[in-house]
Simulated scan of single mutants.
Amino acid sequence: MSTLSRPPGSKDLWLNAAYDLLIEGGVDAVKIMPLAKRLNLTRTGFYWYFKDIAELHRAMIQRWEAKNTGNLIEQCELEAASICESLFNLMDCWLVPTLFDARLDLAIRNWSRVDSDLQQRVKEADNRRIEAIARMFKRYGYSEEQADVSSLTVIYTQIGYISMHRLESREERLARVPHYVELFSGIRPTAREVVNFNDRHQKSIE
């Protein structure tokens, strides 16, 4: 029986701390000693969960892909009675951090500027997101061309929000969402669709 015992902490704990450092200072800030200091753990504990910093980087990227891209695709594929309802489902991503982490998305994009492999992964993620949104539009009768342009408009709008550090209150964002839905779809959402969207986000902050 091994005499080695698992050190304090967990893989997720190290990953979470790495994300915090990435968001605060970029990838150059994600180093083993600063991570250990932040967690009040020894650097030896790091090597229990990761072979080296490169493995940590890979785990960070994989989690970003699963969370931001994976959740966005799932939201696009939810059952909905109309394109407006589907768009409201997608807009949940921009209001629920557990579905989509905008600060992390920006940090990953900034990191990709100095990492050609990651840059390719970001391009692939964007393509997967665009394709999922286009499929969503096509389910409701939009042509290939309409779906393509609409999906690009949705993604570029959100990337603009993120990259420009657009600051607005939650109330302001909620008030604008129905107008974005109408702009993207060309259809005014019904009063019931707007109420349902607002109700679920109001409940999330009560």
Score class of each variant (00 low, 15 high):
104 L>W: 10
73 I>Y: 07
182 E>F: 01
108 I>R: 11
117 D>K: 13
77 E>K: 14
166 R>A: 14
150 S>H: 08
90 L>E: 02
204 S>A: 15
159 I>C: 04
148 D>Q: 11
56 L>M: 10
23 I>T: 09
69 T>R: 15
76 C>K: 02
49 Y>D: 06
173 R>S: 13
141 G>I: 03
19 Y>Q: 07
205 I>T: 11
61 I>M: 13
103 R>N: 13
91 M>K: 13
148 D>R: 11
73 I>P: 09
206 E>V: 11
103 R>C: 02
70 G>W: 09
80 A>G: 07
3 T>F: 08
39 L>M: 08
117 D>L: 07
98 T>V: 08
188 R>T: 14
94 W>V: 05
18 A>D: 04
118 L>P: 03
37 K>Q: 12
9 G>K: 01
53 I>D: 08
94 W>D: 03
109 R>Q: 13
66 A>M: 10
127 N>M: 09
124 E>A: 09
7 P>R: 08
195 V>Y: 14
122 V>Q: 03
36 A>V: 01
67 K>M: 12
24 E>R: 11
81 A>D: 11
78 L>R: 15
194 V>R: 15
34 P>T: 04
8 P>Q: 11
120 Q>I: 10
93 C>W: 01
43 R>F: 00
201 H>A: 06
61 I>C: 10
72 L>E: 03
95 L>A: 05
162 I>W: 11
36 A>Y: 02
122 V>K: 01
202 Q>L: 12
142 Y>S: 03
126 D>Y: 05
68 N>G: 07
85 E>G: 02
147 A>Q: 04
35 L>Y: 05
108 I>K: 10
26 G>E: 14
204 S>P: 00
90 L>S: 09
92 D>A: 02
38 R>T: 02
180 Y>L: 15
166 R>N: 09
160 G>F: 06
16 N>M: 01
181 V>Y: 10
70 G>L: 07
160 G>D: 09
11 K>W: 00
61 I>E: 15
99 L>F: 11
13 L>S: 14
175 A>G: 12
181 V>A: 11
128 R>M: 01
50 F>Y: 13
58 R>G: 02
78 L>A: 07
161 Y>E: 12
15 L>N: 00
147 A>P: 03
86 S>Q: 04
22 L>I: 02
134 A>S: 14
114 V>D: 06
49 Y>T: 03
178 P>T: 11
134 A>Q: 14
153 T>L: 12
199 D>H: 11
159 I>Y: 14
186 G>D: 14
195 V>R: 15
174 L>T: 12
90 L>G: 05
202 Q>S: 14
49 Y>S: 03
83 I>Q: 03
188 R>N: 08
171 E>C: 00
151 S>K: 05
96 V>G: 00
206 E>A: 12
69 T>Q: 15
171 E>Y: 10
163 S>W: 05
106 L>N: 12
101 D>Y: 06
110 N>I: 06
137 F>L: 02
45 G>P: 04
